[in-house]
Design a protein around this nucleic acid. Sequence first.
DNA 1: GACCATAATTTCAAGCATGAAATTTCAAGC
DNA 2: GCTTGAAATTTCATGCTTGAAATTATGGTC
Lengths: 163, 163
Amino acid sequence: MTIQQKPISVPCMAKQRLRVWLRMLKATKLVEATVRENLRVEFDTTLPRFDVLAALYRFEDGLKMSELSAALRVSNGNVTGIVERLVADGLVLRIPVAGDKRATLVRLSIKGRETFARMAEAHAGWVNGILQDLSDEDCEQAIGILETVGRSPKLTAKVDAND
Amino acid sequence: MTIQQKPISVPCMAKQRLRVWLRMLKATKLVEATVRENLRVEFDTTLPRFDVLAALYRFEDGLKMSELSAALRVSNGNVTGIVERLVADGLVLRIPVAGDKRATLVRLSIKGRETFARMAEAHAGWVNGILQDLSDEDCEQAIGILETVGRSPKLTAKVDAND
DNA sequence: GACCATAATTTCAAGCATGAAATTTCAAGC
DNA sequence: GCTTGAAATTTCATGCTTGAAATTATGGTC
């Protein structure tokens, strides 16, 4: 017996946009998987850890936990665990905030700073390698299109102008 | 004999490509977060579940667990849990394979097929809305660029020609 | 000084994701 | 019929992720 499959009727342009999204998702996943794999093999670490280190590297004076989770756009509880493990590895320090016993400042240790510097360099190399076939013009076009997508009012999460 | 070497990309180009990757990642995450949110609010489900249903919708005759995890490019163990929950919800059926007690065939139930059809239609609408500012030309360019990225030999995971 | 809304953070339960180890079954070869 | 290596799947430990609830501290207000 054959199951009758109701065709989903979508206007032509809509279908085209859906195709763009699917390719975008696939390409992103491929690149991300490669980055994860490289981080694992070459530095025995993970992408979330890398992201936390990157944020702290950028804000040299440290961030409060809530600032960190906002910067990474992840939940508060999420950051707690990752930072815990980074502290255990000696890459991150927790510093009490004078005058507010609720908050803690989180920042890179010397070791964390050195470690991330090496990772960031390798990371830039991997990405440049993966995207090596993109011309300057391709890059300009891509950035333009991606920014158009990011400005859509239909997006749930808000984007701050900062990044 | 002299071999004409491709000129080494200057650091400037590398930086440009890194920027493309960062925007790509950000845009993808924004769209994905919106899709997840919409799936949660409107259908009380998740993206991984949606992905499994989509794969099974496409292969009407069902898939073996290993074929399913291969199609989705996720680990075997991962699919086990998601399918378990979908079976519990009555959306998916597990069918023993005649002649091989090791394998099981997994396919949509009637309810699963109907449910996914509604989700897929909504999903297409969300994506079309989010990408509504992309012109036909933008779409063509985007697809071209994204396929170039997907063809990079520096990628870890393999891409099968099928999709 | 007690009260209380709010802020900063952690804890928690559930689900997703991986790679590795364990389990069960199959299919030859002997 | 046994053995044995490979195949299909599950189980497991670990970690990431979320949203919601709980915890603790702050800064007023009365």
